[in-house]
Amino acid sequence: MTVLLEVTNLRTEFSARAGLVRAVDGVSLQISRGECLGVVGESGSGKSVTFASIMGLVRPPGRVTQGTIFFDGCDLRGMSPEEMRAVRGRDIAMTMQDALTALNPALTVGEQLAEVLIAHDETLPTGRAARHNAIKDRCVEMLGLVGIPSPDSRLRQYPHEFSGGMRQRIMIAIALACRPKLLIADEPTTALDVTIQAQVLELISDIRAQMGMAVALITHDLGVVAEHCDRVMVMYAGQVVEEGPTDDVIGHPRHPYTRGLLASIPRPAMRGQPLTPIVGQVPNLMGLAPQCRFHSRCPLAQPSCLVEVPMLPVGPGRRARCLRLEETA
C-alpha cells in the first residue's frame, strides 16, 4: 500500500484574548490508500482541528504555523486557495458531525449534490441536455449508494424532510459524489442512535471497500474504532500519544492515557467492580510547558516526566509518547 496522506510535525495555533492556544502541536500521521484510520480523543484533544488544518479550513484567529502536508504527492500547504478549493470535495471530502447544520436548508438535496459535481467533475459531458441528465443520474446513483429508498423522488426534498440518520447519509453522499481518495468523517455517528449508528458505519465501511478510498474516522468512541478501523491514533491535548494497529492498541495499550480511557468505559461485564476513571481534567492548552501533557493525571508520573517526550517505537508499526513504557509492557 502506498502512502496517500503524509503529515509531518503539524502545528496549528489560535490567538485568543488571553494568549496563544496551541490546539495542534507537532502531529505527524500517515494514511495509506484504502486504509481506515481511527482518530480518537476527547473534546479539546485537537483531533478535529488537525483535519481542518489538513483541509485548509482553519480560519483566523487560527493558523497553521508549522509542518508539512503531502497528499498524493502534492504539497497542500504550498497550494493557493484556489488550488486547495479544487482538492477539497474532489480528492478529499469531509462530513460533519451535525448534518442538520452542515446541509443548506434552503436547497434541495439534489441541488446540493449537483453543486459538488458541477464544481469538481470534469468527466461530465458538455452538451446541455446530456450534462443535465448525467448529473441527475449521478445524484440518483449516489443517493442509492448510501441506501436512501426511492432516490429519484427524494432528490427534490429539503434536508429538514429527512430524519437524522438519513441526513447523515445525504452528507456522506455529497462527500462521495466525486469519488474522493480520502474521506474525513468527523464524528459521523455521534448525533445518531445506536441502531442508526450501526447502519451508517457499515455504510461507510461498505463504500470504502467498493471505492477503495481511505477514511479518517474521527470519533471519541473507542468501540466504533475497534470495529471499523485498521489503525488507530489516540490524541491528547493537541498531541498524538499513541498509534498503531487497532487490535494491538486496544488489546494492549501502552500509553497511560489510552489505558485510562479504556478503563473508563463502563461495560456490563464489569458490574459490581469499581470503575477506574482518569482523575482530573484536560490541561489548559494555553502556555503549556514542553513536558508530558498527561503527567498531572498520570498514575505512573515521575518527576523525570517533566521533559518533552517524543514518540517512541513500541513494536511493529506502533509508537507511544511516554517515558515509562517498560512499566506498561
Binding site: 482530573g280 481534567q281 493525571r297
Partner: peptide, 8 residues
Amino acid sequence: MTDATLSH
C-alpha cells in the same frame, strides 16, 4: 481525587 483539584 477529583477534577476540581486540578481546576483550570
